[in-house]
Design a protein around this nucleic acid. Structure first.
Length: 966
RNA sequence: GCCAGAGUGGCGGAACUGGUAGACGCGCUGGAUUCAAAAUCCAGUAUUCGCAAGGAUGUGCGGGUUCGAUUCCCGCCUCUGGUACCA
């Protein structure tokens, strides 16, 4: 026995032999010890293989963490600890996505500076995270609002600004190369991603003014300025992202949102569309996530078709995925802001077009679901390229300016919207597809035979598309084209609490970038966070900052939330580097993220932009991989039970009337007769159980909380009426529904409370035991007792009821080896496939069995501690120390199973008649096939079935089962 | 509408390559212990017929493949998530 253990025993006996399981003492002890010894600190150790496990870093909101948030963190922590014990050098960091709207809104409401509230929230988050016992290397923490961090966010932005996308080399190249091209060849032979495609010669370029040149270059930069329509909310005084708008009103506050034209910074993510699509082939993400990204990119193959105009010498190009239906095209439709609109409107249609445009622009944004048939004829005609017939050109809401060419050829017979529009405005419809025999298919299906289409008649759709494409290209009427739904990302926010752009403008409006060396361009202090009245950010009101000189105007927009989060995983590799965003040495060692765990709500935003930035950094040679996240696991949500009181719409003697939830059925009420008022779960008895209810205490607390119900009447299931002053004996059932865990429903369960009662180990294991990590499931307050019991049983293998250490060095019995090694095997497999709930089941089976046999040998009990260590890091560390180790269990080597303990000498075969199990038989493992068959047939239960029957066939799978077919 | 995923006891879930459906836990029932309770321990717990032995049914519904299907195939229903005038 080493001196260390002696000390423990001395202490132990000195404390009157009382080593009872005391979670909080054990946790406090090891939290301190781990911090003091920097147990989880990692460095680039070339002797060990690396493994990078990343959690999506949280936005530190004022509400703190609830039990749903750490679900993914616990899973990734178990995985990290396991990998570490398996000999990997594991990078497992954590940080904060610290810029964001809520802090600024909070500042507007309370005057508390976002920097202060954010820091306060971070302090709280950190305490909550520490409580749970995570193995983060906190020395690598990043927060996006730290100037030493956002300096590099700005640096990447400037790089995007200084690069364009070359479609031939399929990568980003410096703008200087583009300028050289312009100087020698103008726009000739240019293959770049750009907003528009102007044509100019080298001489044209040279004769442009600085402003003109700057504008031309903007058209190619990967970070660029453009004028576009944004969701403008007058009441909030700001621009909203699409997901902040619901049903045409702001999600927060429900204020009207309209389209407003504004100069905005944008990122040319569309340049990377094809690579973002193809890059998913070799990464291990869920099918659903990949399909969400695929849909978002929305690649389609089609054709550009040129139509000339009837009266003016110009043309319009449309994009279609169905060039085969060209003969069915009876009119064209342009987006309302198509560049040709002003050129083509005829004098007599001017007024109705103006009226339409006014109508359209004032429409609230994002009117989901409403199919809108509004539109107007421009008075102009185009010439059909094949029939030379004049067809009308319309404007309509349903054609979008930023998809395809912003113009379509309408084919009413082959497109639902064109058909609806044609019917509504009484436009011609020509059938060009014969769908005989395809009555159940929609008109948009690519099936049928071409008719009324000249040389295409008789061809299938597929053949017709090839044929018409060849014809169009031959006659210079059009060409193949690939289109994407993906849009360039709006990168401007008219907000204070974000990264400032390292950009300023001169008196002439020319854009200037700040030099790299001047970064960080720091966010100034502010004490009033109201937006500037013209819709610009609060920074615009800070003249001393925004206008440092008479002819120098700083950009007052700030960057959106996804700026800082698009590259934070790289900064963890080298968090304090003052010279580079990440050193080559660090990124060459850590490479990329091996496992990324986070919520599916970031499926498009964060994950798309991170991949885009990463590919860009790859193009510039700063990172060695094309994809940042090799494997990604989405954790589900932990839901809460929403408890509500049933309030009848009809009042009782003019007073609010609540009834027991049981009475809904009894009284035959429909949802129109009552409303469910969420009750704070602290007031509810038997919370989350079928008989959840409020009692006298609950009624008092409820009324204290919601004073407007002071006079209310509460009716119990047996018809008795209770009031605040007469509530004795009340039992009012509440309505229990599974829903979001949210402040709004007053059903938030704080991990701190759970940990205070059951300990961090129990909390961690219970979160994992609830079910598969990807699934959403409700938090069940009762279920945690099962894990609590398990941990006590586990502990009791090592300490008896008197708290005495009972582990011996004696040789264990054979069955203990068997169950141990079965558990080792299953644990390794289950952790690797992220099946933590089944690993925990196996621990329970193992502990139950060892208790039954009274196993006390350290040869079994020591490896068991290691198996459970990733799940329950505190209690296992304590026991490990008692086992005589002076190095942490988390630094030990994870056990590997030995096959010799897993081979069975006998096998129990199920014996089936016609596939249904009727009996079973235990035979030695090496029993020959014939003998298995004859032994099975000799079983009395089986003979009974065989009596008077003839056997058609007998299937014997050695080691598996026997099936007799009658 | 379109795309993706999922439907298994009272509940959370297990069954990994087609081979004993319901592991493990919660809850519930009964028992032991206790003056009593809590805690703990033991037994039972898919449905149904039956006193029992023992049957029958059973993984959303309807078909199919197979000696054998929760697992594979076809059609449908329901739920969850994504998306929404994308030509």
């Amino acid at each position: 026995m080493n001196p260390f253990v002696l000390t423990i025993f001395a202490l132990h006996s000195g404390q009157n032999n009382n080593m009872k399981l005391d979670y909080s003492a054990i946790e406090a002890k090891w939290k301190r010890q781990w911090a003091e010894t920097d147990l989880y600190k990692v460095t680039e150790d070339k002797a060990l293989p690396k493994f990078y496990v990343l959690d999506m870093f949280p936005y530190p909101s004022g509400a703190g963490l609830h039990v749903g948030h750490p679900l993914g963190y616990v899973a990734s922590d178990i995985y990290s600890r396991h990998k570490r014990m398996c000999g990997f050098n594991v990078l497992h960091p954590m940080g904060y996505d610290a810029f964001g709207l809520p802090a600024e809104q909070y500042a507007l409401d309370t005057g508390v500076h976002p920097a202060k509230s954010t820091s306060d929230n971070i302090t709280r988050y950190r305490a909550q995270l520490d409580n749970i016992g995570f193995s983060y290397d906190w020395s690598r923490q990043v927060r996006t609002d730290d100037p030493s961090y956002y300096r590099w966010t700005q640096w990447i932005f400037l790089n995007l600004y200084h690069h364009y996308y070359d479609k031939i080399q399929d990568k980003a190249l410096p703008i200087s190369a583009l300028i050289t091209h312009f100087e020698t060849a103008g726009s000739k032979d240019l293959h770049t991603a750009s907003t528009s495609h102007p044509e100019f010669s080298a001489n044209d370029w040279k004769s442009m003014t600085a402003i003109e040149q700057s504008n031309v270059l903007m058209n190619y930069r990967l970070a660029y300025r453009k004028s576009g329509f944004v969701n403008w909310c007058e009441a909030l005084g700001t621009v909203l992202a699409n997901d902040e708008v619901k049903d045409g009103v702001s999600e927060r506050g429900g204020h009207p949102v309209v389209q407003k034209e504004m100069m905005q910074w944008a990122l040319r993510v569309t340049a990377y569309a094809e690579r973002l699509l193809n890059g998913m082939e070799n990464i291990d993400w869920s099918d659903s996530l990949k399909s969400i990204q695929r849909n978002w990119i929305g690649r389609s193959e089609g054709a550009l078709i040129n139509f000339s105009l009837a009266n003016i010498d110009s043309g319009v190009t449309v994009y279609t995925t169905r060039p085969d239906t060209l003969y069915g095209s009876t009119f064209l439709v342009l987006a309302k802001d198509h560049e040709l609109v002003n050129d083509i409107l005829s004098a007599d249609q001017k007024d109705s077009v103006r009226a339409y445009l006014d109508r359209s622009h004032n429409k609230v944004a994002d009117t989901r679901g409403d199919k809108n048939l509004d539109g107007v004829w421009t008075g102009a005609y185009a010439i059909h390229p094949l029939t030379n017939k004049k067809i009308q050109i319309w404007l309509a809401d349903y054609v979008l300016s930023d998809y395809g060419t912003g113009a379509i050829m309408a084919v009413p017979c082959g497109d639902e919207r064109d058909l609806a529009f044609a019917q509504h405005h009484q436009l011609e419809i020509i059938e060009v597809i014969d769908r005989t025999g395809l009555e159940n298919s929609s008109i948009e299906d690519k099936q049928g035979i071409l008719i009324n289409s000249s040389f295409l008649d008789g061809l299938t759709v597929e053949k017709a598309i090839q044929s018409i494409l060849a014809y169009l290209e031959e006659n210079h009427l059009g060409q193949k084209q690939i289109a994407y739904k993906l849009r360039d990302a709006n990168f401007s926010r008219q907000r204070y609490w974000g990264e400032p752009f390292p950009i300023y403008y001169d008196a002439a409006g020319l854009v200037h970038e700040m030099p790299y060396a001047s970064l960080p361009h720091e966010l100034p202090d502010l004490d009033d966070f109201k937006p500037s009245p013209d819709g610009r950010s609060p920074l615009a009101r800070l003249d001393s900052w925004a206008r440092p000189a008479a002819d120098k105007f700083l950009e007052t927009d700030t960057m959106p939330g996804y700026a800082g989060s698009s590259w934070y995983f790289l900064r963890y590799m080298d968090p304090t580097n003052a010279d580079e965003f990440v050193s080559r040495k660090a990124v060459d060692y850590w490479q990329d993220v091996d496992l990324y765990v986070g919520g599916v709500e970031h499926a498009v935003g964060h994950l798309m932009y991170s991949r885009f930035w990463h590919k860009f950094l790859y193009d510039l040679g700063y990172v060695p991989t094309q994809e940042p996240f090799k494997k990604l696991v989405n954790q589900g949500m932990i839901q809460g039970v929403v408890e509500s009181l049933i309030l009848l719409k009809e009042r009782h003697d003019g007073k609010a009337h609540f009834i027991s939830a049981e009475l809904i059925k009894a009284k035959g009420l429909s949802p129109n007769d009552y409303s469910a008022i969420p009750v704070h779960i602290d007031f509810v008895s038997a919370y989350g159980q079928p008989n959840s209810h409020i009692t006298e205490e609950g009624i008092k607390s409820f009324i204290q909380w919601r004073n407007e119900y002071a006079e209310a009447i509460f009716e119990s299931a047996d018809g008795k009426l209770y009031t605040l002053t007469n509530a004795s004996g009340a039992f009012i059932e509440t309505l229990s529904e599974v829903g979001k865990m949210s402040k709004r429903y007053h059903n938030v369960v704080n991990p701190d409370d759970v940990i205070a009662r059951y300990g961090a180990d129990c909390f961690r294991m219970y979160e994992m035991f609830l079910g598969p990590i990807e699934q959403s499931k409700p938090w069940d307050t009762m279920g945690i007792e099962g894990i609590n019991k398990f941990l006590r049983k586990f502990w009791s293998l090592y300490f008896n009821e008197e708290g005495e250490w009972i582990v011996t060095d004696l040789e264990p019995i054979e069955s203990s080896y068997k169950i141990l090694h079965a558990t080792i095997k299953k644990t390794n497999e289950d952790i690797e496939r992220f099946s933590f709930n089944t690993a925990i089941s196996q621990f329970m089976i193992c502990v139950n069995e060892l208790r039954k046999t009274g196993e006390q040998s350290s040869k079994i009990l020591a490896p068991l501690v290691q198996l459970i260590a990733p799940f329950a890091p505190f209690i296992t560390e304590e026991i490990w120390q008692y086992l005589g180790h002076d190095v942490s269990v988390h630094k030990s080597t994870f056990p590997m199973h030995e096959d010799k303990w897993l081979v069975n000498t006998s096998i129990t075969y199920p014996v089936c008649i016609n596939g249904k199990k009727r009996s079973e038989i235990t035979l030695p493992v090496d029993t020959p096939k014939e003998e298995i068959e004859s032994s099975a047939k000799a079983l009395p239960e089986i003979m009974k079935w065989l009596e008077g029957q003839s056997i058609k066939k007998t299937i014997v799978i050695p080691g598996k089962m026997v099936n007799i077919v009658l």
